[in-house]
């Protein structure tokens, strides 16, 4: 089953800026898709095209079988955007009640669902405190609870760990990971936080300057950038990098070093990482390492 199917999606804003060109990608139902790229690459524009906030200037996107501009889709999707906040004057419970009403969740069901989410997000003890008194990390958990209220089939997360300290980012990451598995929802996760994405996502897309430059599973992306394989041989005396094409060459390399009189401490096969693949496609300039 395909949850998100974008074909040749493009967006040129009214001011003439091309934010996205010819983006084609598919995300299967239940998949956690990581959309990675530097700031300003077009991630937010992509999310807003997929969740129906913006109309594409070319191409089209089919979301859960309907065209992305179908107004009814908002009942089945949820978006957690970097700048989309909730009401600071209201308490957590009041906030969640308000949004539950906008999603037409009947009162009793909303009450049950809210208590359940508060429990899951470890927010129960502060449910009647005003949101304005919360730390950024706690607010993010409230926002996450909001996106899950109506049991969405697709969750768009745009930089969910932005502005969080490493500890809070870690907590939120773990939560997203668990919730995505438990709910079975499809997750479209935008981030420039590589390590975070590597842990949570099943497959990835890399975007640069409004273009999708690579996509695939973890394994596929790594393989696509591995031109040569390497072993790192550490001896008491030095460190050696040995490239090989055939695994029997590893043995030759080790023998050669031993023959020179050095004492081997460690032999490690070096594999490319998602990070290597990312930098291969995106380039290092202007990127903030997550």
């Amino acid at each position: 089953m395909t949850a998100i199917d974008a074909q040749g999606l493009g967006k040129v804003y009214a001011n003439g800026v091309t934010a996205l060109s010819d983006l084609s990608l598919t995300v299967s139902t239940g998949e956690v898709f990581g959309f990675l790229g530097p700031n300003g690459a077009g991630k937010t524009t992509t999310v807003r095209l997929l969740n129906g906030m913006l109309t594409p200037t070319s191409g089209r996107a089919v979301i859960l079988g309907s065209s992305s501009d179908d107004q009814e889709l908002r009942k089945r999707t949820a978006t957690l955007a970097e700048l989309a906040r909730m009401y600071e004057h209201l308490t957590v419970r009041e906030n969640l009640r308000f949004f539950a009403a906008l999603y037409d969740i009947p009162r009793d069901e909303a009450t049950r669902r809210i208590e359940e989410l508060l429990e899951r997000m470890a927010l129960s003890s502060r449910a009647d405190d005003r949101l304005g008194t919360f730390s950024t990390g706690m607010k993010k958990r409230v926002y996450l609870a909001r996106t899950l209220l109506h049991r969405p089939e697709i969750i768009f997360l745009d930089e969910p760990t932005a502005g969080l300290d490493p500890d809070a980012a870690e907590q939120v990451t773990a939560l997203i990971h668990r919730l995505a598995r438990e709910s079975g929802a499809t997750v479209f996760l935008c981030t420039h936080h590589l390590t975070f994405a590597a842990r949570v996502c099943d497959s990835f897309g890399f975007i640069k300057d409004g273009r999708l430059v690579a996509s695939g599973s973890h394994e596929e992306l790594i393989r696509s950038v591995e031109r040569e394989q390497k072993v790192l041989i550490t001896t008491q005396e030095a460190r050696h990098e040995v490239s090989y094409r055939n695994e029997t060459e590893i043995d030759d390399g080790v023998r050669r070093i031993m023959a020179s009189g050095e004492h081997i401490v460690e032999v490690v096969k070096e594999r490319a990482t998602l990070e290597d693949a990312y930098f291969h496609y995106i380039g290092r300039s202007g990127h903030e390492l997550g």
Binding site: M53, R74, A78, A84, L102
Partner: peptide, 14 residues
């Protein structure tokens, strides 16, 4: 100004 309008627009409200 408080960034809540965007959140509203993501809901099914017309």
């Amino acid at each position: 100004e408080r960034g809540t309008l965007e959140t509203l627009l993501y809901t099914p409200i017309t």
